[in-house]
Structures are given as C-alpha cells and as structure tokens.
Design a protein around this nucleic acid. Sequence first.
RNA 1: GGGCCUAUAGCUCAGCUGGUUAGAGCGCACGCCUGAUAAGCGUGAGGUCAGAAGUUCAAAUCUUCUUAGGCCCA
Length: 1086
Amino acid sequence: MFKTVIKNIKFPELDNKIMKFWDENEIFLKTDQERQGCPEFVFYDGPPGTNGVPHIGHMLQSALKDLWPRFKTMRGYHVIRKAGWDTHGLPIELTAEKELKLASKRDIQSYGEEKYIDYCRSTVFRYKETWEKAIRRIGRFLDMDNPYMTLTNDYIQSDWYLLKLAWKKKLKPDQTEAQINGKSPRFLYKDYRILPYCARCGTSLSNFEVAEGYKDVTDLTLTAKFPVAGEANLFFAAWTTTAWTLLSNVALAVGPDIDYVAVQLKEDTSGGKAGQKIILAKERLESYQKQLSEYEIVWTKKGRDLQGMKYYPLWDWQEDKYAHRVLADEYVTTEDGTGIVHLALYGEDDFRLIRQGGFPLVQNVDEDGYCKDSAGQFAGRYFKDENLDIDILKDLHSRDLLLGKEKHEHSYPFCYRCNAALMYFARPGWFIRTASYRDEMLKANSHINWQPGHIKEGRFGNWLENTIDWNVTRERYWGSPLPLWTCDDPECQGELCVGSLDELRRSAIEDVDKILFNQKIGEIDLHKPLIDRVHIPCPECGKPMTRENFVLDSWFNAGLMFIGQWGYPSTPGSREIFDKQYPADFICEAIDQTRGWFYTLLATSTLFGMENGLPEDQWSCYKNVICTELVLDNEGLKMSKSKGNVIDPSILFDELGADATRWSFYTSNPWNVKRFSLDQARESVRDMLLPIWNAYSFFITYVHVDKWTPSAEETPSDHPLDRWIIGELTRLNRDVTSSLEKYDVAPAAWACTKFLDQLTNWYIRRSRRRFWKSEDDQDKQNAYATLYRALKDFSLLLAPFMPIISEEIYQNLVRSIDKSAPESVHLAKWPQPVLNEIDEELASRMDIARKIVRAGRDLRQKHSVKVRQPLEDIKVVIPNGAVTNVDGLRELILDELNVKDLCILSGDDELIQLKAKPNFRTLGPKYGKNVNHTAGIIRSLNENQIRQLENNFAIDVEDIQLAPEDIIIDRAAPEDVAVSEVEGVTVALNLKLSDDLIDEGRSRELVHLIQNMRKDADLNVADRIRLSYHTDGELDRAIQSQLDWIKSETLATEVKKVERSQNADLISQKIDGFDVYISIEKVETS
RNA sequence: GGGCCUAUAGCUCAGCUGGUUAGAGCGCACGCCUGAUAAGCGUGAGGUCAGAAGUUCAAAUCUUCUUAGGCCCA
C-alpha cells in the first residue's frame, strides 16, 4: 500500500530524510557495485583548491557534474565519481606567508624552509570539510572518502612519470627549434624567462600580484647616444626610463617599416656638438626639437635597412664581439622615445629579441638588485639607488653620449608586499616543448565535443594555435618537486630525470628511504626539503648531482590527473583501472579553464598519448566538455565580499532545498553568464517542485480512497486523455534522453517544465472526475494506471536533475509496493521510450482542443459569464489543413467550458472572414523584386478567390498566376460578433440563457457553496452528508430541477427542505441575489 | 592592444539553415475556479530585437563599423 503524503511539504526537510536514506542504505556505494562489469562512463572531476570556501559558482558546477553520472548510471553504465583536491600551488604559499608574516624568500629562509613547508601542508585542507559539506548538501554523489590529492606520493610519481616521458623524448633533427638555440633537444629542457621580480624579497611575482602594485611615479629618463661603429660623429639615439638597464645593453632595435633619419646638428646644443649626426625615427624629430635645435636631414632610411649595423657600447667593459648590433622587429613603435629601443635582458620583448638575434645574455645587475663586479665603476651599487641614475647620466654627459634627459611620469609596478620597485628579471625554469606538438594538440582538439561549440575553434583553438613552450616549474617551496638532477660540476652537462621513487632508490647515492622518511607524518615524503638531500651520481662524470631546486607548476600537477588520480603507473593495479578509465567521456568546468585545466589536461595527455602509441582520437583525455560561465548577482555584477552581494549557498539549501537550487541552474544554458538571485531560485520551488508534489499528492489521495494498486497486466487504455499523456510522456523521454546525450541540459529542463504543465493543467485537471466518480469501472482503472505510470516515469526522468524529490516519489510509488524493484531511483533503469506510443495526430487534435478552450475562456471573460453558468453551444472554426476531427475530445471541451454542445463549422460560415496573406517563403524566389506587387494583389483577394485557392485551384489575377501555396489563409473574426480566436482556431459562444440554463447555473452555485462548507467542516472527500436547506421561489425551482445531480455532486444521501425555524444550524448564503439557508451534517458510517 | 562571448518585454531567457502578426516564464493588471485548496487556472497590457550602415524582394537572424558589459591574454 502506498504511504500517505504530507500536504505541507518542506523540501529542506525532505533533503534530510532522503540523504539519510542514501547514507543508511549505502546507495552511492551500490551505484558502483551494482554496475560492476557494465560499460564504463568516465567522468573526471577537476580538483578545487581547499584553502578557500566554495561559492555559488561551484554549486552550478556541482549541479552539472552530478547530472550526467546519475543519468548514465540509470542508463546502465558504471560510473566512478572520484573527488579530487588541488593541494599545491601559490595560493597556499601566499596564505602561509601572510599568516606567518613572511614577506620574502629571504624571510622564508630565515624562518626555516622545513617549518615553512610544514605550515603550508597544514593549511592545505583548511576548508576541505566545508567543501565536502557543500557537495553533500546539493545532493551530489561523489566519492570523497577516496579522493585523489596532488600531494600524495602516488600522485607525485605520476608527475615524475610524465616528466620523464618528456625528458626522454627528443626533437627530430629537422625540427627548427633545435637549430635556434642549439640547446638540449629534449622535450623537457632548461631555459630562462622574464618574470616580474622583487629584488628585495628575492621573489618573482605572479601577474595577479603585479597588478596589485602599480603606482604612478616620476622617473628620470634619458636618451643616450650610441656611436655607430666605423663612422665618426654618427650616433643612434635611444631612450630609456630605466637608466640602470643601459649597463646591460646588448643591442638596439628599430621598426622595419619605420622611417629613420640621420640629422646633422648645425650648432652646439645641450645634446651634442655641431656637425654630429643623430639617427632617430622621423616621426620623433619634433619631440627632440630642443636638443637638436637647427639641423639638416642627411638621409632617410627604413628601419630594415639599418639592421645589422654595429655600434660601440657606452662603456668599454661592455665589449663583447657578439653584441651591439641593430636588429629590426615589428614590436618597435614610434609612440615615445626616439623610435629606437635599447635592449637589455630586463624585459620580455628584449629577452625574446636578444635570444632570436643570438646576442649574449648579459645581466650586469644581479638578482639582489646590485651591480655586478663586471659593471665597471658602478659595481656594488643598488639598481634603484637614486644617485645611480644621476651618476650614469653625468658619466654619459661628460663623454658627450647624452642627447637629453627629462622627468617622465608613468605607471610602474612595485612589490605589493615590501613596496620596492620591481624589475623584470630573467629567471631559470624548466620547459616542456608544447610548441613543437602544437599540431598534434590541434588534432586532439578536433575530436573533442565542446559545449558551447564556439570554444573549440574560438577561444580554445586560438589558444592552441598560439601555444608557446610551457614553463612547468616555479622557484617555490610547496609543490610537487621537479625530479631532475644536474651535475654539481658546472662544466659538466650531466643530468637525469627520475621517473619514480623506485628509480630514485636505484639511482641515489644515499639511502632514499631513510632520507625521505618524514617523522612528522610518519611516512616517506617526496616534498622539499627532504628530496633536496638526495644526490645521484652523474652519468657523464660520476660526480654527485643535486636536484634542480624547482617545484612544479600546480597547473601541470592538476593537468595530469588522468593518470595522477590512479597513481599511474607506479601504484600497483593502476594500469588496469587506468585502461578502463581513459579517456573521460565528460568533464565540466568554468570557462577560465581554457587556459587552465582544459589546456593542461590536453597538453599532458597529448604527450602521453603520442608516446604510448594511442590513436589520435584518444590524445585528448576528454571527449565532451561543458564550459560554464560565471554566476553573477541579479544586477549582473560579480559577487564579491566588498560589494556585499555574495549569496551564501547555505541560504539556498536551508530555504529551498537541494532540488530547487539545482533546478535553478538547469533552466538556462550554463555557458551564458547567469544572473542569480534568491527570488529567481524560489521560482523553481513554485514552478516545478510544488506542482510535482501536488500532482503526486493528488494521486495518492485518490488511490487511498479507492485502494487502487497497479497490476502487472494493464491493458492499454483507449481513452484519448490517457493515450495523449502517455504519448507526451514518451516524447519527453525521447527529448530528455537526446538532449542529455548531447550534453545540452537546458532544453531537457524546458521539456520537463512543459510536460509538467500538460500533466497538471490538462491531464489531471480534465481527469479529476474520472478519479472521484463513484463507479469503479475500467475507465477509472485506466485513469489510475495512466497517472501512475506518468508519475513513476516522470520521477525516473527527473532523477538526475532532482535526485531528492524523485527518490521520495519513487520510494512510495514503486518500492512501497514492490520490494523487488531497485532499491533507489538512482539504481533504477532509465525508461526506454516506445516511440509508437506517440500519436502525432492525437497530439495535434489535443492541441486544438486546448486552443478552443482558451478561446472559449477568453469569450466568457470578455462577456463576464462565469464558467459555472452552463451555455447552450459553442461553434468552432478550425483552419484548413489542421485536423478537423475533435472526436473523442468533444467531451473534454464541453466539460471544461461548461457548454452543452459543440459544432465544428465549415470554413465558409458567416462567422468568419477569410483573408489572404502572402506566403513570402514561396513568393520570394518566384517574384524576386516584384514580390511586393504580388503581395498587394494577394492581400486584396476576395473571398471567392481565396476559396478557389483553398480548394487547390490556381488562379490568375492581373496577369499573375497564384498557386495555392502562395497564400496563407487567415480566418479572422469580425469585430462585432462574440467570437474569439487563438492561433488560428476561432470560436463563437452562444451566450443566450434559457430558464433551464439559468436553473442549472444556480444549482451549480449551490453545489459550490456546499463544497466550501464541506471543506470548512474538514470533511474527507469521500464523506457522505445530509443536506438541509431553505429557500423559495425561482431558486427553489432550480434546486428541485437538479436535485439528483446536486446529491451526487455533494455526496448527499438525503436533501431536506426545511423551515428556517426548524434548524438553527442553517447558514445564510446568497445565489444570484436570492437568499438561501443551508446546513450539512456528516453521515457517520458504521 | 589582441582573441572570444553577450546585448530581444520591468526581470530571467528562447528564437534552427533570413520568410505569416518576434515567443515563454516571472512580475504587474483584471478575472476565473475550488472534490490537488495557506493551492490552481485564464486573459490582458508591455518590445524602434543596443546603435549605424550594407547585402537582399525580405534581416532579431548574414556582413562591416560603433557603443556598453563580461571572460581570457598581452
């Protein structure tokens, strides 16, 4: 027997109940166990960092990430849903630095590397429980007991495995990169890159940190004169805002297409002596007017013609036979300075050009910000020492190498921690040659299904096209260690990349297990600082090698979770599970991951795939991906603490519950920016949850009255409502299934909303009488069986979306009467749509019936005739081409509109005016420019002509032949008749009231009053009553004429007309202005 | 500065390959219903489709530009 249903449902309480049920019965575990041996559906969960709290955007993520695993489990797949946590990376170190009040790497050194790293480790899981709670609260099934964590030894060894793969792989000799720098052809190689760097803190900064610290400052800028080699009195003029970088100048850059002039000074000026010739961009002449004064242009040349010219360095100690030449590059502009740029190894573009041009890598200011001994008279000076600029300036001036100086205001980055001026410094790092397998990554991308589609060729494709080699290391402390050892002898090139702990054991000089044993955590620990104490004999010279002091980019770390989560390949058993769990069918993250996780997964898995001989379509470790957008507040602003517009997810759960919160994310495309508000989320309760609950509760109420139970061999009903709703259910099943298979959630949700409307506002509404009528006939059985199936299947289809309410309904509708059924809706089979249950013809007839009803209601409203007042007849005109047969649906319409008769009129009734409208779709191609002339003719066609066309005859009008398909016939109602039209369906209601109709209407009013009294008396729907009333005259006549009907409607066993004095319980009411006195009394059944 | 996305009713969003009068839900107004009832239903008002130009017989839809917002990267 079905359990009774709480009318006053509180969804957050239902959440508790169902989640408790899941826990106690280990439903999640069973989704794993019961699908063992089934085909795998592979889902990868991206690892969030847990030193921050989850926000509403993560709820969107969770809602989506939970949907497909549930769906696929029901579809018969085995789905592993392993949680993951990102436990490395800069955010953790920044938190630690802040809390320990450490401002620099030097501070960290003096605090103690080991203590610092211990502290980092201790903060990693600070909000892990908060995360776990939020994930559970939204009803997500996720294995958080066995998560993958990037800090484990198994995971780190996966890092090592992949790095070793890259290290072993070499460029082919014909690949150009090998020629450029003559460096290691390995796919893992050491190089430099320019990073924002604080010399005082000894730390490079992330872009984000740099952005924190820009300030407007006034600096002394100067324009130096570089003497052209072999030409007396000819100089290049180059401008700089950082005089100290001149100490490391190695080249000058010009724009290839920029016009440069050599101007000869006519007199001595502050910038030079008469006769000297200065080279600068023509466009910049004007701004040097003061220094140049009177001059003459000697020649004009394009920048590219200056390329290769040699010049003398500003100081003797800078001499280097490979340096001090001019090169041309597009990046040079004439926006400021002289249009000639001095290059030193303290800028990103500089670095690129210096490298491309094969210039020496000179840095005369060291990483502490002091001039090196090689910097002549400036050795030992601090780079931002104010006098340094002035001394350089004076020195140049004294040797007539200064064209000009001025104060210049610009914005310059400062260290956000210590306020010192930053410099851009070349830092070492280890790189993976991603650029050399760009084409392979593009091929891999071609096999990925992106939602939304434009990401594939757009944002992500563009990013791949522009891939440069990937710096996978950071000069930090807390992270996966780079497993690369290089020879202590600087002359020796020996290096070794270690691919696993076992390999390290075999290779190391020391006893690895002893050195790496971390007392505090009681196990081997591969992190710094222990790993730094391991040495390996050099394969080249046999001397000891020391580990390169880097940790891995945490993006690299996270990017190889496809092997890392199993600890592949070093963990026993990982190969077997990896083979089954690669590649992922589905991942889902926010759009910022195109440069993050989406990219790093692809970059690592493509390398992995190529090296392991996987086919091209498996180079990407994910096949389908949904990119979600941001969740904003209802003003379209980013939620942030400072604006105070953050919606705490727990508020949603406490007020609305998990299902409603989830649903509010499913109803719009997740790849569009979502404006989110609590009010909007509340709509999910009102629009979906309550109507579902009401429908379910309605069913249970009547099932209890009739003690109905489903039987195994239901004969299919031929009632049109039943056949129709089953067809719509099947259609829903088909549409939801295909949408979800395409990873397109919103249309699936919309289809559910539409079905719910059809179920509640039409099927149940129109079937109510079938449930409450007293005969227990086949029709009633059919109604029960149909509604039962609709609710049951609907709950199955909703299960991936709203796991709670669907579980509750399933438990009652299925499990409470069939203990052999799957224990949970989430272990049940997804219903298979039987497509021949969709009767398209019936569906379109039903559609017309609903339109007729709408038009009829419209008329009643316009003429203020209540639905309780029966009317004689309704006339309906249905457009040509539509189904004219409403047989079987006639009763529905009559009942809904409370009319006695319905007649379908042929199209030529006087009710209707025929109008022809041009069908541009066919006319356009036929008439082209003359389409408007033809359209005019069509609009002025008379009814006869239209009828001819309607009857499929072509006609000629004004020499133009019109075909039937050229017009669209519009049946409009003339303004002055009581007629209404809804989407082509026109109806007329007969509003004339006969005495009989009036009597009927009044007795319906009486029934209405009695029903209200039943409700007020708290009677059960099946309780019988005795009815007493008093009235006279017209109203009494009406009651007498409908007595039997009134009795059956109100379940009155007897009706007594009484005098007012006879019964004190009589309650005074009014019907149509007549007084009536009524009392009811419940009949006690024995 | 570059790439990508977005702009449609008061709000949140649909609108496919150009083609009838641009749709839905919410909100609002009015009304209905009441044997799902601290629910339910209907009708109505409300739009120069961000702006401009172009292609076309025809543009919310295609092209270009502009404006505003967003994300990512420099």
